[in-house]
């Protein structure tokens, strides 16, 4: 009898846990209330919290009812943290030598999950489904590194595994939308790749854009920053990306 009650109780608890997990997975929210930043962002906002990375720290702020912030936690990290990206209940930090994953099911206490190390380079990260896309760029003081895209399977967050890599010229920011991956390559312009089959990345086209730096793909419209200003493109047809407008930089 008591075993039965205990069993019932377990079922109920398990059910609750499943529900709370689902709540947690709403981290980035598709409710339209949260916006979208580029891949070089140092702020990531969820429905309830703001996560901010500094060169050597991760800070957690709670969003109060009226939108005000309260600082609730801070972690010291190794110096070299450059970007942050939140998806579901995961945080992905791009650092000079790794992609670090945190579980934010309990947002006040991000739990370190894994670190995917690579060459020392500059490396923003974006995530879609079970894949993470990291670009690595060499620069002056980090000559041993390489210029490439790495696609990492993060289905098991404890054990990120590289699926493939793709050579690039000088990658900066990047963005992913469905099968399309947009990589800013500075003076080499904008590179559009088809990543439908991550084992076999295909180049769609390179567009000559002046010093492409970062992008936000947004439902068929790409927002890109470059030397000339902030340009927007229609990418509903990936083979014929069309410039819509340019907010120019003052001459």
């Amino acid at each position: 009898m008591s075993t039965r009650i205990l069993f019932m109780l377990c079922v109920v608890v398990a059910g609750l846990a499943a529900f709370s997990c689902q709540d947690g997975s709403d981290g980035t929210s598709a409710d339209g209330l949260t916006g979208k930043g580029g891949s070089m962002a140092r702020f990531a906002v969820t429905a309830t919290h703001l996560f901010a990375v500094e060169d050597d720290a991760l800070k957690v702020y709670q969003i109060m009812g009226n939108g005000a912030l309260e600082k609730i936690n801070a972690f010291q990290l190794n110096p070299g943290v450059e970007t942050i990206f939140a998806r579901d209940h995961w945080l992905y930090l791009g650092t000079v030598d790794a992609m670090i994953t945190y579980d934010i099911t309990t947002p006040a206490n991000p739990v370190y999950v894994s670190s995917y190390s690579h060459f020392v380079a500059c490396d923003p990260v974006v995530v879609q489904d079970t894949l993470a896309f990291v670009t690595l760029r060499t620069y002056g003081c980090r000559p041993s590194s390489t210029n490439q895209l790495e696609i990492i399977n993060i289905k098991n967050p404890q054990q990120p595994v590289m699926v493939s890599s793709y050579s690039l010229n000088s990658p900066y920011g990047l963005g992913v939308d469905g099968d399309l991956l947009f990589v800013c390559e500075g003076e080499s312009g904008l590179t559009v790749l088809n990543v439908k089959d991550p084992m076999n990345v295909k180049l769609i086209k390179r567009y000559d854009e002046n010093d492409a730096y970062d992008v936000i793909p947004n439902d068929g419209t790409l927002i890109m920053t470059g030397k000339d200003g902030v340009a927007q493109y229609d990418y509903t047809d990936a083979d014929a990306i069309r410039k819509l407008s340019l907010i120019p930089v003052a001459p």
Binding site: G35, G37, D214, I216, T225, V230, I247, P248
Partner: peptide, 18 residues
């Protein structure tokens, strides 16, 4: 005012922030 040294970008609902 005109853009001079644009930095990061952010898109939210109908707004584009630069």
């Amino acid at each position: 005012r005109p853009l001079v040294h644009p930095g990061k970008i952010y898109s939210v609902s109908k707004y584009l922030l630069i």
